[in-house]
Design a protein around this nucleic acid. Structure first.
Length: 656
DNA sequence: CTTTCTGAGATTTTT
DNA sequence: TCTCAGAAAG
């Protein structure tokens, strides 16, 4: 009763634009969230709307855009929200800070780089760059090992340990014990490589993804002036997708909001799916437990039909904060479970569903196929190709991570940061006759001269590079180019060198060449090399991928469940819900099923009208899983836990 | 000594 | 499709 009264009282004085557009739960969250507030937003409950109107409300109360920080999970989400705020308020939002954690930290670090021992034109290493740098360091280390080198763990294993340590923000030692205990003999070696890696990044004036976060947290905790500048600037800090933040990200926003004391976080604990990247499910739990935290729940589901919502409520992951979603839509059809024989039959069943939807005039853009891992979509991709059903892929290698794009980019990166040994190595090795050894020698000789003040062209002349005529001429011309015209540089790289290399190297050179031309198009929107490179490493795939294909084209979507976060479709088809595939084999092995349950929850909550869940009676399609897990199958079968009355179950006719 | 060629083996999720 | 180690070729 008291709750109702509170809302009623508020309602009298709230601006009309809020009253007209929000339900009571949403309104309460928008108006009353301040101080430390946690808004738990169930799937499809209008979370984006709440954040949008919260900021619109703040602006209507006289808060300036520059006093607001909005941290989102993807760049696209930030853009979507600021566009909507602009529509609602008609305000000029210049000055608002809106972006991912990495964008926000990058902005801060550019200003305070010197304070933590960096130059402010530091480069940012993406995960591929980090791998390359590790490779260089490992090779150097191995050289000094003599006979022992042969027994030394493979590069990929070291890479795994280090990236695990880095992503989960654990120590190297812990990581070795956790993911590769048999490497304990090499513990010191791996730690040594890790130490070199850290040192090398500093030497070449580069930060990786983790450094952006760690260094920002460090800056804010040890540099009183920086903290004061930043924390006094922001009156409100809002964080979206809070369930997927890690420890350091929490530290950062706490520091930034430490003056204003207004930290408003929004998320859904049931949708926390990034623990492999260090996301802490506990961030939400701990936030709730604080004495001064205000808790809001918005749980009306506007997205899905009651049939799907009942199903969702039944599949709430273990350890979730109590939730009961209510649907406001009309009854439609129950979710379908389809049992097929194997992978091939599964693909045929999917094609059949899609063709049926096409007959019913469902827009292809409203259909999505989701899966646990990218490899599970391979058979279906072939089938879709042969049936000529157009699709766009959100999973798989990012455009920016493909070899040809990385190669072209490496030349630009040298121009930006001549000490970037990763890019020197990569680009030099493209020329015939130059391998690891020669590339390293050339890099060392050129940069050491460069450090002594000798200019780049002079340095070329005095190095081994001179022996390789083609490469020498090419780099010489490259260094004479105008650095702030990335598209001209790419055009030069492609036409003078890479086109030929591509045609000789790749079977599918035609499509790769087209990618590079597209890449050149994208680059023409940037007038500085720094901005262009920053955007390329910090922005998620969608920005680049959407340029890759014409979005208006009618096509279905194929993506991993991770890639489907925050999206919705009328028809959702979920592939391979078999123990070993989904839940994933590693998760079963380590008995870490909580996160898999949450992933399943994310998957099924993407559907607006129709949901199809497919499984195969042959079980896991993963060959490494085949025998050892068969006997535990039932225990880990998501489908076994589904109450029969909530779904329709079908079996396709087994033809094999 | 270094690079290039060859065939076998592997594959969670990503800012 | 991509990586890796060993063999063959500069």
């Amino acid at each position: 009763m008291e709750e109702d009264k509170k809302i009623f009282e508020i309602k009298k004085e709230i601006p009309k634009f809020l009253k007209d557009n929000l339900d009571e739960e949403q309104l309460d969250a928008v108006i009353n969230s301040n101080g430390n507030s946690l808004i738990i937003a169930g799937p499809g409950s209008g979370k984006t709307r709440v954040i949008t109107y919260k900021i619109a409300y703040l602006l209507s109360q006289g808060v300036k855009p520059s006093e607001i920080m909005l941290v989102t999970f993807t760049r696209a989400a930030a853009k979507q929200m600021t566009d909507r705020i602009r529509n609602v308020t008609d305000q000029d939002l210049t000055g608002i800070t809106a972006g991912t954690f990495h964008h926000v930290c990058n902005g801060i670090l550019r200003r305070y780089a010197k304070a933590i021992g960096y130059e402010n034109n530091f480069s940012i290493l993406d995960s591929e760059d980090s791998k390359d740098l590790l490779k260089i360091i490992r090779n150097e280390y191995k050289e000094g090992m003599g006979e022992d080198a042969k027994k030394f763990p493979k590069e990929s294993v070291i890479q795994k340990v280090i990236s695990y340590a880095s992503n989960t923000l654990k120590s190297i030692r812990e990581s070795i014990l956790e993911i590769a205990p048999y490497l304990i003999d090499y513990e010191n070696d791996i730690e040594h490589i890790w130490g070199n890696y850290q040192e090398m990044k500093k030497n070449i004036n580069a930060m990786d993804y983790d450094d952006l976060l760690v260094n920002t947290a460090h800056l804010l905790s040890f540099n009183k002036k920086a903290l004061n500048d930043i924390a006094s600037k922001y009156k409100y800090v809002l964080v979206d997708e809070f369930q997927d933040t890690n420890k350091i990200q929490l530290e950062i926003v706490q520091a930034i909001s430490s003056y204003s004391k207004n930290l408003i976080v929004v998320g859904d604990d049931s949708q926390s799916i990034y623990s492999f990247r260090g996301a802490r499910y506990e961030n939400i739990e701990e936030f709730i437990k604080r004495d001064d935290t205000k808790l809001f729940k918005i749980q009306t589901n506007y997205r899905s039909t009651p049939n799907i919502v009942s199903f969702i409520n039944n599949m709430l992951p273990n350890n979730s904060v109590e939730k009961n979603l209510k649907s406001v839509r009309k009854e439609y059809v129950k979710p379908n479970i389809i049992e097929t024989f194997d992978d091939l039959e599964q693909s045929e069943a999917v094609i059949k569903i899609i063709e049926e939807k096409i007959d019913q005039d469902v827009d292809l853009n409203e259909i999505a196929v989701l899966y646990r891992s990218h490899a599970l979509s391979m058979t279906l991709q072939q089938k879709l190709d042969s049936q000529q059903i157009p699709y766009r892929l959100l999973s798989g290698k990012r455009f920016i991570e493909t070899k040809h794009i990385k190669d072209v980019l490496s030349f630009l990166k040298i121009l930006y940061n001549p000490y970037d040994n990763i890019s020197w190595n990569r680009s030099l090795k493209l020329f015939s006759g130059i391998g690891v050894k020669t590339a390293t020698d050339i890099y060392k000789s050129i940069t050491s001269q460069f450090k002594e003040g000798i200019n780049m062209l002079e340095a070329f002349k005095n190095s081994k590079l001179k022996k390789f005529k083609e490469a020498y001429e090419f780099y010489k011309k490259l260094f004479e180019k105008d650095k702030n015209k990335p598209d001209e540089i790419i055009n030069f790289i492609f036409n003078e060198f890479y086109k030929e290399y591509s045609n000789l190297t790749f079977r599918n050179s035609a499509s790769r060449n087209m990618d590079i031309e597209r890449f050149q198009d994208i680059s023409s929107q940037y007038e500085s090399l720094m901005k262009f490179l920053e955007e390329m490493t910090l922005s998620e795939n969608i920005t680049v991928k959407s340029a890759e294909r014409d979005q208006k084209e009618d096509q279905i979507t194929l993506t991993t469940v991770h890639g489907a976060k925050g999206l919705e479709w009328k028809v959702v088809i979920l592939l391979s819900v078999n123990p070993g595939d989904f839940p994933n084999g590693m998760a079963i092995k380590e008995k870490k099923l909580d996160e898999e349950e949450r992933l399943f929850y994310v998957a099924i909550t993407r559907a607006k009208d129709e949901l199809y869940i497919l499984k195969q009676i042959t079980g896991s399609t993963n060959p490494f899983m085949s025998n050892s897990y068969v006997f535990v199958k039932k225990e880990y079968d998501f489908i076994k836990n589904i109450p029969e009355n909530l779904v329709e179950t079908f079996k396709t006719s087994y033809k094999y």
